[in-house]
Every structure is written in structure tokens, then in C-alpha cells.
Design a protein around this nucleic acid. Structure first.
Length: 1155
RNA sequence: GCGCGCGUAGCUCAGUUGGUUAGAGCGCGUCGCUGAUAACGACGAGGUCCAUGGUUCGAAUCCAUGCGUGCGCACCA
């Protein structure tokens, strides 16, 4: 038996019960077991880092990551969902430093690397519980117990294996790199970190004279905002195509700047610059100049080297060509200090390549890694670079080399965690992966990936790949995967190792005792630490390259993005173990993260996979790859949904001092003095609610549905509590109300549903339901039943099509329309059938079965989207057959189309009928005739008569819906309606092209009614346009209607509905009866009558007109409201209420009669 | 600065290969319905589809330029 389900549902409570149910019955595990023989759907979890609190953005990614695996599982696929955690990296170290109150590498070293990394390892799990709780509460089904963890030994060794592979193929090399350097902390920062720290500052900007060696009294003017780099100057750059001007400044000194900037520079220095002649940049190349400081030039000023092309050239302080020189700012001449600028450094590399080996210019660098000047510059030794700006400027002025000085406002990066520390660009030795060798391969791979939205492929991601630079892999830090390269201390020869075991097998291994001692001293230490610093650093072995020499590991760890990008194989420990799993679970069918991962996880995965498993190998040492299977593109993921970023919505007092999360609070506190804001979510601003609060107040399904159904997932989405709350009534609650309606009457009527089906039941598909003795063939049922089942099938088909294309938004739109049709048309139109007296009436039972089948199917359809609500509804629906069907909706197969149910004509017909009903109500509204007042007649004028016969057959439904006595469909209604004939543009456009405006004009000019007659009689319309005759058939034109003024009419696209507004006394009395019925219904409800209670109606007052109404309508009133008798005098026991019926006032009361 | 995305109703967003009356939800207003009822329905107001130019018989849609905005990259030597 069904049990009446209350409309008052609290989703958060319901969800808690569902969670318990899932746990108690191992539902998730069983969904996997059940599909173990099915085809694989491979999903990869992009590992979050658990050392920060999860926030609403993570809910979005986790919801999407849950949706498609659930869907595919119901479609029969076996979808493993291995969780993962990203555990290495600077953020972890920073957290630990904060905790310890220390700052910078020196302090870490003095604290001790060993205890430091032990703390890092523990810190990684700090918010683990919150993460697991959020994951579970959101309904994200994933195997947390078997999560991969990037610091685990097996994971690290997988990464090592891949690095050894790259190293052996010559793809891992050591080089210099200009990095953003945090001098106080002694570390380079990743571009992401640098990006966080930009802010606007005013820096001194100086225009400096570089005196030319071979042209007395003439100088180049260069500009810089970093005066402290001038002592390290090596070159001056010009653009070869720019025109430069030699000017006289009035004092006899000559200076050279870009011609375009002469006026600007004259104004700056308040000088008159007389242009003497102009010269092309290309002609200046090779000119030598005197650098502003002679710390290096005193020794190297005349140094020369041999060119590869023959001949000799001075190594330093000459003019070179560079394409990046512009006249947007500065002077068109650029000071180059290769040590402190990436582009400057590239110029040096190019210069070095021109000279024979050993004679090239070297890097000049007057600053140490601590950001202070070295002994190379005695007058500034030990001075912090930014503090040197003033001194440098003063010296320039004294040497009469300063042309002009001013403040310059620009954005400059500071350390994101020590915001007083400016970053400097600085050369560091670094390990690189030669990703540039795989640029084309990565592009080819990328081409095959199914990106959503697809502009990512050629847009953001494609562009990023196009401009690929070698991956700077190493980090001079502590907590990360150690770079597995050992160097011979004598010869510098290097070897990469692919596992810990391989290391232990090396000859003459020493240093393993460091770990053993640590472990002995503290048995709690996790074994995974032995492959980390400092234990791994302690292990050395005999060099095969020089007798007596040791092999020692380089000190660096690697970029943690490499860790995450290696997860397709490292999650299984491949290839040291897990070969089978890897073979089955590669590549992924589906991944999803937010757009910020474009250069993060999306790239690191693609790059590593392309290099290791790519189709073609462009590297020098390809055979080293032979143990790895090559894979056809795309890999390692086939489809990727790139999510938009999540924004916060909050309210602020107008002075910006107070923030509120809801508008109500803001209004309460500030009256009207508040503004609404949207922007980035910020921990500091506390401008968003914790996900937990949303779960507690509105439920996880509300949040999920809001994410899935409100916009395409790649749009940015506002995390708005109001919007989340609003998503409940429009879908979840509406569906719940249908369930409630169904179960209330199902219980009253004793409808047994699947309970009366004999034999084996499984998942209540149509073929099972039809075994019920009372389930009649759909074709024999009422048209409304066939309509809603057709909608059900069409929707199933469409939802499957959308979901197969990863279009959750489209799927949700279709589901909303389906539930709306069920609730607001099917159930509403069928209520009388459910209320029918005869419990076993065929029509009534049909209605039950139809509604039941819809509910069962919809529950399955929505299960991946709102798993909690779906489960709760399922449990109610299976109640009569509990124990005989699948225990959970999530164990069912996903519904697909049932071809026999589909009737596209009927769908169009019903839509037309619904439109007519809507227009009828609209016309009533205009004439102020409420729906309860019956009318004698409406006329419906159709533009197009295809469905006329059908509509005529359904007059009854419309009569009821519109509360009218008769409906007529006049063929022509020239009295009410004006016909306009317009061409069918889509059809005629290609055929008549430029003539189309004339066709339109000709059709417009002719009488619409006449054209229509012509069309009806001959089947075509002939138009004479200038020289050509155009023949139009029925399909070529479209008839539009317009209601003529003066009628109670409403007009839609397809038809006009005209009301007869004449009211007879009889109609008015009928209206009164309907009013009375409503009043009684209200009273029943107010007095909390049971649905089945019979009542006595007491009605006192001056009747007159009402008397006749009662006489006519008594039977129907009594039946509708379960009235046993109508009493005209009031017994004392009944409370009376004054009510208005039409223009009459009466007193009415009701009293429940016992049986 | 470069790249990518976005600009449609008060707000949040749809808008299918270009087709002539641009839609939805929320909010607002009016009205209605009433034993699914803290739900539901109808109607209304509200739009120079960012601007300009172009292609076309026809542009919210395609192209160009500009403006605004978000994100990413880079950073002015």
C-alpha cells in the first residue's frame, strides 16, 4: 500500500535519512558491483589539497564530478571513482611556517628539515575531516578509502619512473632561468604566486646617458625603472626598423632617442631638442658605449671574442637589435641587464650563440641571491637592491649621466605572503623539461579532446600550448617529490633513478641508516617519508664514472603540478605495480575542473601524457621509451568540462563598513542604505556562507539542482543563497507535490500499484507494470494519459541525448518542462478522475497507473542530479512492492525512450490546446470575467487547420478548462479577425532571394482574406512581380491573425480566441454555485476535515436568486463537497460565517456528520 | 599591453546552421484558482539585444572597429 506523503517536506532531514540508508545498505558499493561486467567509463579525480578548508567552489566541481559518473553507472557502465589528494608544495610549507612562526629558508634550515617535513606531512591532513564530510554530505560518491596520495611512496616512485624516462631520453636538462625571486625567503615563486602579488607602486624612473665611445659628446638616452640594475648593464637595444634622431640639447651635447619621442623627452627635461639628423636603428647596431658604472668595464671594457661567422667583436656594451623595443614609453633605447630580466636574458643567449664556444659574453650580475650587492660593487656592497636606487641615481647625477628623473606608477609584484618584500627577477640554475619538443604533439593531442565549451581547445588552452616554453620543473624547497637525479661529485655525470629499490641496489650504497634511525626513534613516522628529504638526500652510492667518487642527489624537489599531472598512471603506482588497472583506466572519458586549471592540471596531464605515451616521439633518444605503450590521441582525457568560476553575492552598507549575507539582514540594519555586490569569494571578506549552512538550511539537492539547472556549467555562477533556495519550489517541491497528491489518493483508494503484480519484479519498467491485471495497454487509455506518457518518453530520449553530450543544462531544462507538464497539466486535468466515486473504474485506475509510471520513470531520470530526493521518492513508490524490487533507485537502469509511447502529433496538438486555454483565460482577464463564471460560448479562430478535427474532438476538455458551454472553430471569422499573409522566409529566402521584399510587399498589399480564399480553392497563390511570376504553395506562406478591436479576444501565434461575454441569469446562478463550492471547500480545510469526512451544510440568509440556484445545482454541490444535507436554520452548535456569493451575503457553517 | 570569454528585461541567464512578433526564472504589479494549498495559474509593466560600420533579400546571431567587463598571461626594460 502507498502511504500518504505530506507536502510539508524538510529536504535536509530527508537527506540525512537517505545518507543513513545508503550507508546501511552499501548502495554505492553495490552500484559498482552490479556494473562490474559492464563497459568502463573512466573518470579521473583532480586531486584537491586538503590543507585548506573546502569552499563553495569545491561543491560545484564535486557536484559535476558526481553527476556524470552516476549517470553513466545507471546507463550500465562500470565507473571507478578513485579519490585523490594533492599533498606537496609551497602552500603546505607556508602553513607550517605560519604555525611555527618562522619565515624564510634560513629559519627552516635552523629549525631542521627533518622535523619540518614531518610537520608538513601531518599538516596535509588538517582539514581532511571537513573534506570527507562535505564530500559525503553533497552526495559525491567516490572511493575515499582508496584515495591516491601524492606523497605516498608508490606515487613518488611512479613520478620518479616518468622522470627517469624523460631524463634518459634527453628531455630533462639543467639550465639557467630568470625567475621571480623572493630574496628574503630565498626562493623562486611560481607564476601563479607572482600573479597574486602585483600592486601599483611608484618607482623612481631614470633617463640615463650612455656615452658613445666612437662619437665624442654624443650619448644614447635609455630609460629604466630599476636604477639598481644599471651596474649590471651589458647591452643597449634598439629596434632595427625604428628611426632614431640625433639631437642637440642646446649645450653642445648631442643625444640619441627614437624620433617619435623627441618632443616628449624635450618636454620632460624642459629642453629644446634640435634634431640634427635621423638614422635607422639597424645602422646603430654594433656601436659601442661607455656603461654608466665602470665596476666591470674597467676590466672587460675592451674584451673581444671570436665570432662563429669569423672575425672578432667586442663582448659587452654595444648596441644590439631587439624586436621587443617600442616607442610606447621610455626612449626607444633599452638598457639590458640580462641578470634581471627575462627578455634581457634571451638577448644574452642569442649573443652568446654568435660567438665560438668559450669566448662568448658572460652574464654580469652584481647582486647576490640575498638581493644585496656583492663585492663586485664595493661602494654598494651589502646594500639591498631597492635601497640602492637612490645612491645609484645620485652617482649618475654627479657623473652628469642623468638626463631626467621622475616617479613612475606601475604594477610591480611583491611576495604574496610577505607583502612588503618586492620580488626581483634573478637568474637561478634550474631543471627543465623540454616540453617545447612536444609542442606539435601536444597540439595534435589537444585537437582530439572534447572540450566543453569547445572554444577552450583553440582558444585559451590552444594558445597556451602554442606559446609553450620548457617546463621549469625544479623547486629549491623541502616538501615535494625529490628530483631523482644523482650526480657524480667528481665528474658531474648524472643518473636518474626510477625507484627506491633501484637506489638500494646501487653499488656501495650508504646513508640508508639515517631513515632507519629516525624510524627507530619514532616508530610513528609514516614509511612514505623515507623517499623524501632529508632522508633521501642522505643516500649516496659509488660513482661508476670515477673511482672513489660518490653519487649524490641534487637538492631540488619538483613542481607539485607535475605530481598531479602524473596521476593517470601514478595513482596506480604504475609501472612498478598496477599495470592492469592502468591499462583499463587510461585514458579518462571524463574529467572536470574550473577554468583556473587550464594552465594547471589540464596542462600538466596533457604534457606528461603526451611526452610519455604520445603517438610520435620527437625526442633524441626514443628507444628509451620502448617499455611504454604508445596511445592514440586523445589522452589522458577524452572529455573535459571546464567550469566557470564561482562568485559570491553579498550586501554592504553604503559606507562599505558592514557586510551582510542576505538582503534581509542588510535591510534590517541599514534601511535602504545598502548596496548589493557580486565578486570573488574571499576568506577575508567572509562574503559567502559555508556549504554546511546551505546543506543544513536548504539541502544538498537544492544546491546541486541550482548548479546543474541554472546555466551552462562554463559560465561563472553566483553562489547566492536566495537563488539556491528559489531552486527548490520550481522543481523539487513541485515534483514532491505530485508524489504527495498521488500517495494521498492512492492510499484513500487503496490503489495497490505494483503490489498486485504476480511473480518477479525488478525495477518497475513498463514491461513489468503491464503484468498487473489492472494495467491497461497505453493505447487504450485516455488521450491525456497517452499524452503525458508520450512526453515522458520524448523527455527520456532528449535527456539521454543531452547527458551523452555532457550537457547537464539542456537535460535539466527538459526535466523541468516534463515535471511542469505532469504537475500543471496532467495531474490538474486529471484530478476529477482521481476523485471519481468508483474505486475500480477503469478510467480512474488508468490515471493511477499513468501517474505511477511517470513518477517511477522521472525518479530514475532525476536520480543522478538530485540523488537524495530521488531516493526518497523511490522508497515511497516501491512501498507496495518493497522487498521485491531494486532497493535503491541508484541501482536501476536509466530510462530510455519507449517508441510506442511517442506521439509527436499529439504533443503539438496538446500544446495548441494549452495555448488556446491560456488565451481564453487572457481574454477573460481583459473582460474581468473570472474563470468561475461560466460563459455560453467561445470561438477559436485558427490560422492553420491541420489539427482542427482533433481540437473539435477535445472540446470537452477545453470547455471545462475555460468554463464555457460551447466551443466553436469557425473556418473564417472575418468579423473578429484580420488576416495577414506573410512569406515563409526560411523557405523562400534561398529560392527567390532578392525578390523576397517584393513578395512580402505584394502579399501585404493584397487582401488577406482574398489570398486565403485563393489558396483554399486552388492550393496556390500567384504573384506577378514586374517581369516574373512567383507561385507560392501552402508551405510558402504563413497566415497571421489579428483580433479586430472591440471583441473580448486574445491573440496568440496560431490563433485568436473570442469570448461571448453575454451572461444569462442561468449562467450567473451556475457561477454562484461554483462560488459556493469554493467557500465550502475553504471551510472544510479551515476546520481540518479529513478528505473523506461527510458534512452537513448550514446556510442562513436572504436567498431570492440563491434559492433557485440551490434548486438547480443542489445535487452537484452536495456531491462535490461530500454534503449529506443542507439545513436552512442554524442549530446553536454550528458556528456561522458571513460570506459573499456574487452580490449576495449569506451565513454559512458546516458540521461533520458521523457515519 | 597580449590572449580568451562575455555584453539580451530591475536581477540571473536561454536564444539551435542568419528567417522578420527576442524568451525563461526570480523580483515587481494586477487578478485568478483552491481538499497537491507555506503550493499553483493567468495577465501586465519592463528591451536602441553595448556602439558604429559592413556582408545579406533578411543580423541578437556572421565580419570589422571601438567601448565596457571578467579571467588568464605578461609587465613596460
Amino acid at each position: 500500500m502507498f502511504k500518504a506523503v505530506s507536502t510539508e517536506v524538510r529536504f535536509p532531514d530527508l537527506e540525512q535519512r537517505v545518507l543513513q540508508f545508503w550507508k546501511a545498505n552499501r548502495v554505492y558499493q553495490r552500484t559498482l558491483e552490479q556494473r562490474s561486467g559492464g563497459p568502463s567509463f573512466v573518470f579521473y579525480e583532480g586531486p584537491p589539497t586538503a590543507n585548506g578548508m573546502p569552499h563553495p567552489g569545491h561543491c560545484l566541481t564535486r557536484a559535476i564530478k558526481d553527476l556524470f559518473p552516476r549517470y553513466r553507472t545507471m546507463r550500465g557502465y562500470h565507473c571507478l571513482r578513485k579519490a585523490g589528494w594533492d599533498t606537496h608544495g609551497l602552500p603546505v610549507e607556508v602553513e607550517v611556517c605560519k604555525e611555527l612562526g618562522i619565515h624564510g629558508k634560513d629559519e627552516i634550515e635552523s629549525y631542521g628539515v627533518e622535523p619540518f617535513i614531518q610537520r608538513c606531512q601531518q599538516s596535509v591532513w588538517r582539514y581532511m575531516q571537513q573534506w570527507e564530510q562535505l564530500t559525503e554530505r553533497l552526495g559525491f560518491w567516490i572511493d575515499l578509502n582508496e584515495a591516491y596520495v601524492t606523497y605516498h611512496q608508490s606515487y613518488v616512485e611512479s613520478v620518479w619512473w616518468s622522470l627517469k624516462n624523460l631524463f634518459d631520453r634527453g628531455l630533462l636538462y639543467r639550465g639557467y632561468k630568470i625567475v621571480w625571486w623572493w630574496a628574503q625567503g630565498g626562493t623562486a615563486l611560481s607564476s601563479g604566486e607572482v600573479g597574486q602579488g602585483y600592486r601599483q607602486v611608484a618607482d623612481p624612473s631614470v633617463y640615463v646617458r650612455f656615452n658613445l665611445v666612437d662619437q665624442p659628446n654624443t650619448s644614447l638616452i635609455v630609460w629604466t625603472t630599476t636604477p639598481w640594475t644599471l651596474p649590471s648593464n651589458q647591452f643597449a637595444a634598439v629596434h632595427p626598423d625604428l628611426t632614431y634622431a640625433v639631437c642637440d640639447d642646446g649645450s653642445g651635447k648631442k643625444l640619441i632617442v627614437a624620433e617619435a619621442l623627441v618632443a616628449t623627452l624635450a618636454e620632460k627635461a624642459k629642453l629644446t631638442l634640435q634634431v640634427e639628423k635621423t638614422i635607422q636603428g639597424i645602422e646603430m647596431i654594433g656601436w659601442r658605449y661607455q656603461p654608466p658604472f665602470d665596476y666591470y668595464s674597467s676590466k672587460l671594457g675592451s674584451a673581444q671574442g671570436t665570432l662563429k661567422s669569423g672575425g672578432k667583436e667586442h663582448l659587452y656594451w654595444r648596441v644590439v637589435a631587439a624586436d621587443f623595443v617600442t616607442t610606447d614609453s621610455g626612449t626607444g633605447l633599452v638598457h639590458l641587464a640580462p641578470a634581471f630580466g627575462e627578455v634581457d636574458f634571451d638577448v644574452l643567449i642569442k649573443q652568446q650563440e654568435r660567438f665560438v664556444s668559450g669566448e662568448e659574453p658572460k652574464l654580469i650580475c652584481a647582486v647576490g641571491p640575498d638581493g644585496k650587492f656583492t663585492a663586485d660593487v664595493p661602494s654598494l656592497q651589502g646594500v639591498w637592491v631597492k635601497d640602492a636606487d637612490k645612491t645609484v641615481t645620485r652617482s649618475l647625477r654627479e657623473a652628469e649621466l642623468l638626463y631626467h628623473q621622475e616617479q613612475y606608477l606601475h604594477d610591480y609584484p611583491f611576495c604574496w605572503r610577505a607583502d612588503q618584500d618586492p620580488l626581483i627577477q634573478y637568474p637561478r640554475e634550474s631543471w627543465f623539461i623540454k616540453t617545447t619538443a612536444f609542442r606539435d604533439a601536444m597540439l595534435a593531442n589537444n585537437k582530439q579532446i572534447g572540450w566543453l565549451p569547445d572554444h577552450i581547445r583553440d582558444g585559451r588552452f590552444g594558445n597556451f600550448l602554442e606559446s609553450n616554453v620548457d617546463w621549469a620543473l625544479s623547486r629549491e624547497r623541502y616538501w615535494g617529490t625529490p628530483l631523482p637525479i644523482w650526480v657524480c661529485e667528481k665528474t658531474g655525470q648524472m643518473e636518474a633513478l626510477g625507484s627506491y629499490e633501484e637506489l638500494l641496489k646501487k653499488p656501495g650504497v650508504e646513508g640508508t641508516d639515517v631513515w632507519l634511525k629516525a624510524k627507530a626513534a619514532n616508530p610513528e613516522l609514516v614509511d612514505d617519508l623515507k623517499v623524501h628529504k632529508p632522508y633521501i638526500d642522505a643516500i649516496t652510492y659509488s660513482s661508476p664514472y670515477a673511482a672513489g667518487s660518490r653519487m649524490r642527489r641534487v637538492s631540488e624537489v619538483i613542481d607539485c603540478w607535475y605530481d598531479s599531472g602524473a596521476m593517470p598512471f601514478a595513482q596506480w603506482g604504475y609501472p612498478h605495480q598496477g599495470k592492469e588497472q592502468f591499462a583499463k583506466q587510461f585514458p579518462a572519458d571524463f574529467i572536470s575542473e574550473a577554468i583556473d586549471q587550464t594552465r594547471g592540471w589540464f596542462y600538466s596531464q596533457l604534457a606528461i601524457s603526451t611526452m610519455l605515451f604520445g603517438e610520435q616521439d620527437t625526442s633524441a633518444n626514443a628507444q628509451a621509451k620502448s617499455d611504454v605503450p604508445a596511445q592514440a590521441y586523445p589522452h589522458p582525457f577524452r572529455n573535459c568540462i571546464v567550469l566557470g568560476l564561482m562568485l559570491a553575492e553579498w550586501y554592504e552598507s553604503k559606507d562599505g563598513k558592514r557586510r551582510f549575507l542576505t538582503e534581509d539582514e542588510a535591510r534590517k540594519e541599514c534601511g535602504t542604505q545598502y548596496v548589493s555586490k557580486t565578486g570573488k569569494m574571499s576568506k577575508q571578506l567572509r562574503n559567502y556562507r559555508s556549504p554546511q549552512e546551505i546543506f543544513d538550511n536548504h539541502g544538498a539537492d537544492a544546491l546541486r539542482w541550482y548548479f546543474f539547472a541554472n546555466q551552462a556549467p562554463w559560465n561563472s555562477i553566483i553562489y547566492s543563497e536566495r537563488a539556491i533556495r528559489d531552486s527548490i519550489p520550481e522543481f523539487l517541491l513541485r515534483l514532491w507535490n505530485v508524489l504527495s497528491f498521488f500517495t494521498i489518493y492512492g492510499e484513500i483508494d487503496g490503489f495497490r500499484g505494483p503490489g498486485d503484480i504476480e511473480g518477479k519484479l525488478d525495477q518497475l519498467n513498463a514491461d513489468e507494470l503491464q503484468r498487473s491485471p489492472r494495467y491497461r495497454p497505453v493505447a487504450e487509455r485516455d488521450e491525456l494519459d497517452r499524452w503525458v506518457l508520450s512526453e515522458l518518453s520524448l523527455a527520456s530520449e532528449e535527456v539521454v541525448r543531452c547527458m551523452d553530450a555532457y550537457d547537464n543544462y539542456g537535460a535539466c531544462q527538459r526535466l523541468i518542462a516534463l515535471v511542469d507538464g505532469l504537475s500543471n497539466w496532467y495531474i490538474r486535468r486529471s484530478r476529477e478522475r482521481f476523485w471519481a466515486e468508483d474505486v475500480n473504474g477503469v478510467d480512474k485506475v488508468d490515471a493511477y497507473w499513468t501517474a505511477y509510471e511517470c513518477l517511477v520513470t522521472i525518479t530514475k531520470l532525476i536520480a543522478p542530479f538530485v540523488p537524495f530526493t530521488a531516493e526518497a521518492i523511490w522508497q515511497e513508490l516501491i512501498r507496495p512492492a518493497a522487498g521485491r524490487v531494486r532497493e535503491s533507485v541508484h541501482l536501476c537502469d536509466y530510462p530510455t525512450a519507449i517508441a510506442e509511447y511517442q506521439d509527436r502529433d499529439l504533443a503539438v496538438q496538446m500544446a495548441t490546446l494549452r495555448e488556446i486555454a491560456s488565451l481564453g483565460r487572457s481574454a477573460r482577464m481583459d473582460s474581468k470575467l473570472k474563470v468561475r463564471q461560466p460563459l455560453s460560448r467561445v470561438e477559436v479562430v485558427l490560422a492553420e487547420h491541420t489539427h482542427l478535427a482533433w481540437l473539435q474532438n477535445h472540446a470537452a476538455m477545453l470547455r471545462e478548462e475555460l468554463n464555457v458551454k460551447s466551443i466553436e472553430y469557425p473556418e473564417r471569422a472575418d468579423d473578429y479577425v484580420q488576416y495577414t499573409v506573410v512569406p515563409n522566409f526560411r523557405r523562400l529566402g534561398p529560392r527567390v532571394g532578392p525578390l523576397l521584399p517584393k513578395v512580402k510587399a505584394a502579399l501585404g498589399a493584397a487582401s488577406g482574406a482574398a489570398l486565403l480564399t485563393q489558396l483554399q480553392e486552388t492550393g496556390q497563390v500567384r504573384l506577378q512581380l514586374d517581369a516574373t511570376e512567383v507561385v507560392l504553395d501552402r508551405e510558402d506562406i504563413e497566415v497571421r491573425l489579428q483580433a479586430k478591436p472591440g471583441w473580448a479576444a486574445a491573440q496568440g501565434k496560431q490563433c485568436v480566441v473570442v469570448l461571448n461575454t453575454e451572461l444569462t441569469p442561468e449562467l450567473i446562478r451556475e457561477g454562484l454555485a461554483k462560488d459556493l463550492n469554493r467557500v465550502i471547500g475553504d471551510m472544510r480545510k479551515k476546520q481540518q476535515c479529513k478528505f473523506t469526512d461527510r458534512i452537513r451544510l448550514v446556510m442562513v440568509g436572504d436567498f431570492a436568486e440563491l434559492e433557485q440556484m440551490l434548486a438547480e445545482q443542489q445535487a452537484s454541490i452536495m456531491q462535490a463537497a461530500l454534503i449529506t444535507e443542507i439545513v436552512r436554520t442554524a442549530p446553536a452548535s454550528v458556528a456561522l460565517e458571513k460570506v459573499e456569493l456574487g452580490n449576495y451575503e449569506v451565513e454559512i457553517g458546516i458540521q461533520v456528520v458521523s457515519d
